[in-house]
Design a binder for these strands. Structure first.
Lengths: 210, 210
DNA sequence: GACAGAGTCAACACGGTGTCGAGAACCCGG
DNA sequence: CCGGGTTCTCGACACCGTGTTGACTCTGTC
């Protein structure tokens, strides 16, 4: 809201804070979070290490900020997803899962770093949880209504099923991104995941056409 | 093979090495791997920190040794699993998955530490991979033969399916053990996982009785 | 032109890892 | 029982990354 006169010899605080985030995301593209030191981030942003602490209280705080952007994007996109499950269940699920895969791929470095940091940092864990939860709730609602209208069989709690399938997605996608073995080929991932979702939700191979 | 005459004033090297492992597994039961220092392990085994390095070259090496025992147990138990899939597919899968769950639960600390360390340590990653792979191969073989005898539908690659389901198990079980949220209730975990496996392998709710 | 606040960094303290080299304890053949 | 190799032990040190402190410099304001 302020400034803009180009006579600010020193770059402003906001720009520096941003430079740190940009540096972090860039470095995460080439190596693991643990292999990036605060010194690296400071140098990348053109400041000294102590100055880094003026902007963030720790390296994890930087990751948290990065993750927060991603989470916001996911939540936004979950909200505007079409809910055409009654007419084309298979396609609708595939599009939903595809969105999830897309976000992971677009923010590969942040996603994998966050997943690793989750084990050690409470705030990262809480933030990630929140996102997983919102996605799981979204899936639970739909599964529940599919069961209610008789399109999907009962015999399993909708929430348990939704949580398990979402955790599967998280794990399978990170395995693909990290090129682990065993993993599956990236190009087939979306297809494989959708198939598992559909079969286990509908208890049949072709919901709608039995 | 040697000794046993109780006149060995100093405890032997093997006993010390073992004391370190015992200490490590005990400490892993109460706090995270990162929160255990080499000093802690040494003190627990009654030696000084530098002496620790005589037995293990790093903390990760200790985890690796611990993990190796667990892996060996899994491989052994995979081998002696009954393969009565033709007569009782649902029960056979449930028993197999149950074994997996059991090992995770019995070695909770080691399993979760190993999963976290995997991101950073090549040897841990390789060892874990090997185990997942053997379990995935086992599942792939069975799925493939179920597809061949017409009990399970095609439309999905047996290996892709096996890998995804195994990764799901890994993730769901760790979520349960770590009491993450979202997660599912421990008592229902085996039931939920089996249901997903069966529905996605057989494309039906009750394989054998359509 | 002096005051406030934002921003900057050299220097320090600390905690954990890993190494080195000097020795103690133990074990064996002579 | 004794001398020499092997096994084992640890004090002291070097190193690296984190986080803190306190003094200093801007820059904009009344």
């Amino acid at each position: 809201m302020v400034q803009r006169g180009r006579r600010t010899a020193k770059v402003s605080g906001d720009e520096r804070q941003d430079a740190i985030l940009v540096t972090a995301e860039a470095l995460l593209g080439e190596r693991a979070f643990d292999d990036i030191s605060i010194e690296d981030l400071a140098r990348g942003a053109g400041i000294s290490r102590p100055t880094f602490y003026f902007y963030f209280s720790s390296k994890d705080e930087v990751l948290l900020a990065l993750l927060d952007r991603v989470i916001t994007e996911v939540e936004h996109r979950v909200g505007e997803l079409p809910r055409d499950f009654e007419t084309d269940p298979a396609g609708a699920w595939t599009r939903s899962i595809g969105m999830f895969v897309e976000v992971f791929v677009n923010h590969r470095g942040v996603a994998t770093a966050a997943i690793a940091a989750r084990a050690r940092n409470d705030e990262v864990r809480a933030l990630w949880s929140r996102s997983m939860q919102s996605w799981a709730d979204f899936s639970t609602d739909i599964i529940r209504s599919e069961q209610a209208r008789g399109a999907a069989p009962g015999g399993i709690d909708a929430h348990d099923l939704a949580v398990s399938l979402n955790l599967m997605n998280e794990r399978v996608i990170t395995a693909v991104l990290n090129q682990e073995s065993p993993a599956i080929v990236e190009s087939r991932a979306l297809d494989v995941l959708s198939t598992i979702w559909i079969r286990s939700i509908y208890g049949s191979v072709n919901p709608g056409r039995p």
